[in-house]
Design a protein around this nucleic acid. Structure first.
Lengths: 332, 332
DNA sequence: ATGAAAGCGCTAACAA
DNA sequence: TTGTTAGCGCTTTCAT
């Protein structure tokens, strides 16, 4: 509490009776010192409570030991889970996470990117929202790993096996006897959503079920918006389907609630499958059958990959696909 | 893409035909330069795409323009919302957020704190979990703002008006005719929870309703745990109550689901009020009546306060109470 | 095995 | 109004 001055490598050197170069060598385990010297220096460091000044290190080495993460909405449990895993993993590798919430707002995002560049982050992990990602000029030749979605010129991408996800959803519904299945998708028709549709249609095809335009609906993938679409559909066309596959769990929940309010039984009359396996899907009543994305694997791969890139290693696998799995619950 | 070298203040100075001191002055708007010089320097900065090296600045000034946030679980929407607000606010003040997920794990938390100290954060915002917070020795004389809960020796604290929250919950239940109200609380009996109970009992008292031991239950405040407690209660004692006040929304949801599974109607037979107003409470069916904590105000106050402290200003108000409000919905 | 010293990019005190 | 310069704490090269 007394001296406001941090202890520096110089203090340690003096106290240990060696040069700062030697202290530095010990800290970085660069070799070139005797066992006894090392012992003494380490002890002194301990005694002084010395911690290296990262600014000085950064200035010398041009590294900051921090990684920026850009995410559309940290409030979304799917993204939050990825960040939590990243945080834990990177901490173990002595890296910190600079979290940036883009809020799907272009301006905010630009400011954040500029901030990250100024902060000299060693790399960026870009967890996309639904939009296509813009080209990032401010941070050229900085390692970037994309999760979920990427711009054309992206180098490294990690995503879930969306095609299989769609396939599993379709198969589950069919196995439970559905023949007229509604496909309710995010209106922003990103490649991941397209993959889910492809897998879904593959499942239909394998079972001799055809897919028609009128079975595909789209809306902004939030609770209220989805409710609106379902209510209108029921009012105008009635319940002409016996299954629904939605591209996220929130949409599934909205559908289920609207169906129940209309005295349509789930899963007896209509079966529903969502996507993501956010916790809400297991607290709902009935619990929602869904396709689980493996956020832990997604995060771990992203973390390991960005560290490799930072270390200058060549990344062979530009695109990593993480498996998904069906979690069958009460709505099917 | 060509030159790997970042442009420095020296490059700008040369190109603009002035000294680095002048460039520095312009950047920091410290005055002491002519309009023309400023103009020229700014233009040059623009042309070169110069961004200051924060490591160098940090080394000189001992500031990092970054703030650490320690949070028990970023996956919890309540915390995530605070972080999102903080992020946006601090970005506007040119600060970055180093997010640390403590996972309620002592070891992790210690490592994070050490990391923050090494990173030279300018301040720390400590969003408590349920536990009492340990004393932080690694980061003495660093500004810390606590949200929600604080250790004995804490300086600055920002929290919701929990007492009023409990009071409003009690009053709402009573107003709807409840006379035997269960108080289901977080088993970790933190001061915030105690305040909620006090407010709740005050409401009862004002209406001539007594509170007895057998009406208070406690459990680990998660979905499954709460379900277990409710199931056992119903099995052993039956439904001897006509209202429930839980200390968070997840617990409320668990209660509601168990009640409905036991053919007990909500809100007809039992009315329920939760706490926090996480989004789940409005997606549930029926929608959950709850006490809303104002995460935005919480975050804004914390952000403004920490910046003041960083600027060395004296904080008069050591403890700030943020109002809460009742959101009446379907379960009452 | 160890030390001396240059220099990373910047701010601020001092000089002009 | 502008320039010169010391030095923040560290890594690294070159001597020894």
């Amino acid at each position: 509490m007394e001296s406001n001055k941090r202890v520096s490598i110089i203090d340690v050197a003096k106290k240990a009776g060696v040069s700062i170069a030697t202290v530095s060598r010990v800290i970085n385990q660069n070799g070139g010192y005797s066992k006894e010297t090392e012992e003494r220096v380490r002890k002194t460091i301990e005694e002084c409570g010395f911690t290296p000044n990262v600014n000085a290190i950064g200035l010398r080495t041009n590294r900051s030991n921090s990684i920026g993460v850009i995410v559309p909405d940290i409030t979304n449990e799917f993204f939050a889970r990825i960040i939590r895993e990243l945080d834990t993993f990177l901490l173990s590798r002595r890296y910190s996470l600079l979290v940036c919430n883009s809020n799907e707002d272009y301006m905010l995002e630009n400011m954040h990117i500029k901030g990250l560049a100024e902060k000299h982050v060693d790399g960026i992990i870009y967890i996309s929202g639904q939009n296509e990602i813009k080209e990032i000029s401010e941070i050229k030749n900085l390692p970037i790993v994309y999760i979920d979605r990427a711009p054309k010129n992206a180098e490294v991408l990690i995503l879930s096996d969306n095609e299989t996800g769609g396939y599993l959803a379709g198969r589950e519904l069919i196995a439970k006897g559905c023949t007229k299945i509604l496909f309710l998708r995010d209106i922003r028709y990103a490649s991941t959503i397209r993959s889910r549709k492809e897998g879904f249609i593959r499942a239909l095809g394998e079972n001799g079920i055809s897919f028609s335009e009128e079975l595909e609906m789209s809306c902004f993938p939030e609770y209220e918006e989805t409710r609106g679409v379902m209510e209108r559909l029921l009012r105008e066309k009635g319940c002409f389907f016996d299954g629904i596959f939605t591209t996220n769990d929130m949409m599934a929940l909205a559908c289920i609630n609207v169906l129940m309010e209309n005295r349509i039984k789930v899963p007896d009359q209509v079966r529903v499958v969502g996507f993501d396996n956010i916790s809400l899907s297991q607290f709902a009543n009935p619990q929602i059958t869904t396709i689980a994305q493996d956020t832990k694997e997604l995060a771990l791969h992203a973390g390991e990959t960005i560290l490799k890139m930072i270390e200058g290693k060549e990344i062979r696998k530009k695109k990593t696909i993480i498996p998904v799995r069906l979690i069958a619950r009460g709505t099917t």
